[in-house]
């Protein structure tokens, strides 16, 4: 086993989540999937902030990233809301939950 400290581990996990989210975003034409993928990406980013707050694990955690993550989550929620409502409209107007260019 490779010896990973906690900070690095979470950072890796965050990166992987971001990657998975990104893959989801570009690979699946369904809008709902894309929006969810976005959220996964977001979570990946937050994870990295948390990892940064953890630092080397010694001493108190840095409070700043926490504040950032909270702000980020708020923004992400807003964005998700808008995205979902747009997706609904797309579905309503075009009869399909996919964008034209993404239909194969």
């Amino acid at each position: 086993m490779i010896d990973l400290d906690t900070g690095t581990f979470y950072m890796l996990v965050g990166t992987v989540l971001f990657g998975i989210g990104f893959y989801g975003l570009i690979a699946y034409p369904h809008l709902l999937r894309k929006i969810l993928a976005m959220n996964i990406m977001g979570i990946g980013v937050f994870m990295i902030f948390i990892a940064a707050a953890y630092g080397s694990g010694e001493g108190d955690p840095d409070p700043v990233p926490h504040a950032l993550v909270i702000t980020g989550i708020v923004v992400a929620v807003c964005a998700t809301g808008l995205a979902l409502s747009l997706a609904v409209q797309v579905q309503a107007l075009t009869g399909s939950p996919k964008l034209d260019a993404d239909k194969e």
């Binding site: 990104f22 975003l25 570009i26 690979a27 034409p29 894309k34 964008l99 260019a101 993404d102």
Partner: peptide, 15 residues
């Protein structure tokens, strides 16, 4: 140009 609008293509470019 239209091809670029496809998310898979665009995302690959981005990456």
């Amino acid at each position: 140009e239209l091809r670029l609008r496809n998310w898979t293509t665009a995302g690959s470019w981005l990456l």
